[in-house]
């Protein structure tokens, strides 16, 4: 356990100072920073030039890309609840990270511990779902509440110092997106997009017709596990801004808003667009009115969902000749 922590710290030192650090500077400052400063100059939109808002917008774009991308598979497999469950496991992971930092001299990023715990929980949930069959709601509820219980015990096990840090993860905050976290988020997003691209066809097959997929010889269990772990990564990535309690929304609401679009691949693209509108608008409004980013993003997303449903309804009325 200690040796893993040392390894993680060592990896982190390399990450911040070494080659990777150079790449992070290049992407965050030279590419993204310059682009947004240019946009700020062109549009007169000053907040785009603020470094911490630049990181928040980077997180917003990443979340909007990977949330609906993975969420499309979850929603159409009727596994939307798994996002919420893994978010609560990630909370336990964050608490474990903060706890380790408080009681030992090591410094571990809570995001990394969250990632590990959520990924393990993802495999556990998948195993429970596979074995329990019809009782999948029960197994999800046990893992969900169980991890939140572990988290709350860990938070209160110290003298209260980490209770302050934890609330930023519970409700999300623009300020939690440090340079390191922005870089981690970007790396996780690249991994998620690459893995989904590589496994896109079997994932579509398994989502649409699980038994048919098994009959043609696809490793359905493996792909289900992959989807669960991808969900864990998305949840941890999005948690900093969205907060543990609301993070599952980005897996579900943009996907639901995009459901009227014809074609599964096109509906994913539409979900990403809905996600981008929600997060970018949400982050902006959250800064202007100084309210919670996660909540603002979710409210914007629900608004977009409402508009989408309204458009379908109006279209239906027109085609019926009522209007």
């Amino acid at each position: 356990m200690i040796s893993t922590q040392i390894l993680v710290s060592l990896a982190f030192a390399l990450f911040t100072d070494g080659l990777v650090g150079g790449a992070v500077d290049f992407v965050l400052d030279d590419l993204w920073g310059t682009a947004l400063e240019l946009l700020a100059a062109l549009t007169g939109f000053d907040i785009l030039a603020l470094p911490f808002m630049q990181r928040a917008y980077l997180a917003a774009v990443c979340i909007a890309l990977i949330g609906p991308l993975v969420g499309s598979f979850l929603v159409h497999r009727e596994m939307a609840m798994i996002g919420d469950t893994l978010a609560h496991s990630a909370f336990a992971g964050v608490a474990a990270g903060l706890f380790a930092n408080a009681v030992s001299p090591l410094s571990v990023s809570p995001l990394l511990t969250a990632l590990v715990v959520a990924a393990v929980a993802a495999l556990l949930v998948q195993a429970l779902v596979d074995h329990a069959g019809a009782y999948r709601d029960t197994s999800l509820a046990i893992v969900l509440t169980g991890s939140f219980a572990v988290g709350s015990v860990l938070v209160t096990a110290t003298d209260g110092g980490i209770a302050v840090g934890i609330s930023a993860y519970l409700f999300g905050s623009l300020a939690t997106v440090t340079r390191i976290n922005a870089a981690l988020l970007l790396a996780m997003s690249v991994v998620v997009i690459a893995v989904v691209a590589a496994a896109y066809r079997p994932l579509v097959y398994v989502t649409f017709d699980e038994v048919g997929a098994r009959a043609v010889g696809l490793a359905v269990t493996r792909y289900s596990q992959l989807l669960a772990v991808l969900t864990a990564v998305v949840v941890v990535a999005a948690m900093q801004i969205m907060g543990v309690i609301l993070v599952a929304a980005m897996l579900v609401i943009p996907v639901a808003a995009a459901t009227p679009v014809r074609g599964f691949t096109r509906s994913i693209a539409a979900g990403v667009v809905a996600g981008l509108l929600s997060t970018v608008l949400g982050v902006t409004l959250s800064y202007w009115y100084d309210v919670a980013a996660g909540g603002t993003i979710v409210l914007v997303a629900i608004g977009i969902y409402g508009v989408s449903k309204g458009a379908v309804w109006a279209n239906h009325r027109i085609s019926l000749g009522d209007i």
Partner: peptide, 8 residues
């Protein structure tokens, strides 16, 4: 409810 088309 999955918005998948016949061709897909």
């Amino acid at each position: 409810e999955m918005p998948i088309t016949v061709r897909e």
